[in-house]
């Protein structure tokens, strides 16, 4: 069976680009705080979502709607309405992280397929089986902290599908539990749908040297000919114990393209591409690349060499935790 390519779409145009480029499935979110990419100018209103789902279905693709932030006390109705509207829009599944919202969806929208978001950070078979048995979750998006061997071990003990990230921005923390953005800006991907929100980011360039400031703090500085990273604390450059460097993680993107055969052997169902905040140009290029890779695998051909370095943060790539060679 061909591995499913799950592609990001931050706008209706990106959704159409993903579908045309060969995406089996597209994931996207409503234009509010219910999803973890709540950036200015991004996401779908209800009408756009309904039209986007119709376009995808007409071309044989599925649409998953991410409602993967954690509802605030007293404002749960915003998240409940998003689940209801996802069903009305014809979504093939919703991607949820909060156990309370999973319970709400299972009770009130039992016909709407539920996937567990990476934001739930479910990283072992016991917790995945708990989510499957309690909320009838059909698929789990695994956090980016597991090796291929660990993924195989999990798949051997669970009955639900697994989806893993293969390309894009690399969170090095346990997702859903990272407070770095909150620490500096008061806003987080978990509660507000924004990591290092643009409203708190400032760039200053002087004689070719680019400073990135987050919440008033300079978090990295790059020289004239150096590639620029995203302004996230986890990729920041800090001094500690007489050393200056990227203490958490270098500014690189995940690219597990060459590991696709191993991931298939490990029992993975779907391959996820990160980047709902990226353009339709990015979406089209990455989707074409990965669709060619899974089709080559299915045909018994070698993995094609990708051309994605330019699209990568820091213009550098890593296989992340899949091959644990970190310092």
């Amino acid at each position: 069976m061909v591995m499913e390519i799950v592609c990001p779409a931050g706008t209706p145009a990106a959704l159409r680009a993903a579908v045309k480029a060969g995406a089996h499935t597209v994931y996207c979110g409503f234009n509010d705080e219910t999803n973890a990419r709540n950036f200015p100018g991004l996401n779908f209103d209800r009408e756009e979502m309904r039209d986007g789902v119709a376009f995808a279905h007409a071309h044989g693709s599925k649409v998953l709607i991410a409602i993967n932030t954690f509802p605030r006390a007293g404002n749960e109705a915003i998240w409940h309405r998003a689940v209801a509207d996802a069903e009305v829009c014809g979504a093939d599944a919703v991607i949820l992280a909060d156990p309370g919202l999973l319970d709400y969806a299972a009770r009130n929208h039992p016909g709407l397929r539920r996937h567990l978001s990476v934001q739930a950070a479910a990283a072992n078979a016991d917790i995945i089986n708990f989510y499957a048995e309690t909320f009838d979750v059909k698929r789990v998006v695994l956090p980016r902290v597991l090796s291929v061997q660990e993924i195989a071990a999990i798949n051997a003990e669970i009955q639900v599908e697994t989806e893993v990230f293969v390309f894009g921005g690399l969170c090095v923390m346990a997702e859903g539990r990272c407070s770095l953005s909150s620490y500096v800006t008061g806003l987080s991907p978990n509660m507000n749908g924004v990591c290092s929100p643009a409203s708190h980011v400032e760039y200053r360039e002087d004689k070719g040297v680019l400073d990135a400031r987050l919440g008033g703090y300079t978090i990295h500085r790059v020289g004239q000919n150096e590639p620029a990273p995203y302004p996230t604390l986890c990729k920041g450059c800090f001094g500690a114990s007489d050393k200056t460097g990227h203490l958490f993680e270098d500014p690189v993107s995940l690219n597990a393209e060459q590991l696709i055969p191993q991931l298939q052997k490990a029992g993975v169902t779907a391959l996820k591409i990160e980047g709902r905040q990226r353009s339709r140009s990015y979406v089209a290029q990455v989707v074409r690349n990965f669709r060619a890779a899974v089709d080559a695998l299915e045909a018994g051909c070698p993995m094609p060499e990708g051309m994605l370095a330019r699209l990568s943060e820091g213009q550098a790539m890593t296989t992340g935790a899949y091959k644990k060679t970190w310092r």
Binding site: Y282, R310, L311
Partner: peptide
């Protein structure tokens, strides 16, 4: 025109 990705142009300066 959607020929370039904005983030990629930002990474490359």
């Amino acid at each position: 025109h959607g020929a370039f990705d904005g983030d990629a142009l930002f990474f490359s300066r």
